[in-house]
């Protein structure tokens, strides 16, 4: 089943189109990566899918529900993680997970289980009851990823999930996302500057430049087509063309 279906998305700020002619599909159980330099349109695309922004033209569907017309239903299916998101510094990690669960409509046993799951995957141990303002950057990212995963959403929309993290935390977060998608048969669309990370994590990738997709496919297949050792090399070759 198709989890995400973007059909001819266009979005402009002022007179400049930051997303144009965007078409892609993400299958159920698949991790799909958007890769490209700053200003390529990755974050805008993810914000459209997360129902924060509306496309000027075209539409996208999350399990056949329009991100423009069916926002309420879409918000129950997705979990969005913005890039470099901060924390509520006076709430503890556990309080944050509980509030998030309540807003997502979880109650009683479901809520308790979701919080326990969130606490477990965050790996924060006793720090889960400390105010989040005292967390390191890596710990903040872990609690945010745990929040995104705790309600067992069918579609994850993750903007640069490991940006700015040290190796240890980045490896932890990558593994968490991969395991989640596999276990829940969920779908994930993520953006990243790090092409090596995308190559490791994603089943399919889309290289973006100036708001449009310039190459799309299985990382291995793309590397083969362009006779390149990695995606970075592919990107350079495509841009030079």
């Amino acid at each position: 089943m198709i989890a995400v279906n973007a059909i001819d998305l266009w979005k402009k700020f002022g007179k400049r189109y930051v997303v144009k002619r965007l078409r892609f599909k993400v299958e159920e159980g698949e991790i799909y990566g958007l890769v490209g330099p700053n200003g390529a349109g990755k974050t805008t695309t993810l914000r459209i899918l997360a129902t924060i922004l509306k496309p000027d033209k075209g539409d996208a569907y999350i399990f056949e529900k329009s991100v423009v017309k069916d926002t309420k239903i879409v918000r129950k299916i997705i979990s969005y993680l913005p890039e470099d998101v901060g924390v509520y510094k006076h709430l503890t990690g556990r309080e944050f997970l509980k509030i998030n669960g309540l807003i997502q409509g979880l109650r009683d046993r479901d809520l308790k289980e979701a919080i326990e799951y969130g606490v477990e995957i965050s790996g924060l141990g006793e720090f889960i009851d400390a105010p989040m303002g005292s967390y390191s950057k890596g710990m903040r990212r872990r609690i945010m990823v745990a929040r995104a995963l705790m309600s067992k959403s069918r579609v994850l929309i993750l903007d640069e999930p490991t940006s700015g993290l040290d190796v240890e935390h980045a490896v932890y977060v990558r593994r968490l996302i991969k395991d989640y998608v596999k276990q829940m048969n969920a779908s994930c669309i993520m953006s990243s500057h790090n092409m090596l990370e995308v190559e490791y994590m994603c089943d399919r990738v889309a290289l973006m430049k100036d708001g449009a997709i310039i190459v799309e496919g299985d990382p291995k297949q793309i590397k083969g087509e362009y006779n390149a050792e990695n995606l970075e090399e592919v990107f350079i070759k495509v841009v030079r063309k």
């Binding site: 997360a50 924060i52 309420k72 918000r75 993680l81 913005p82 470099d84 998101v85 901060g86 924390v87």
Partner: peptide, 12 residues
């Protein structure tokens, strides 16, 4: 600024 508002806006 912290982008926590973006998370709130995507919740049901």
């Amino acid at each position: 600024e912290a982008k926590t508002l973006e998370i709130l806006l995507t919740l049901p």
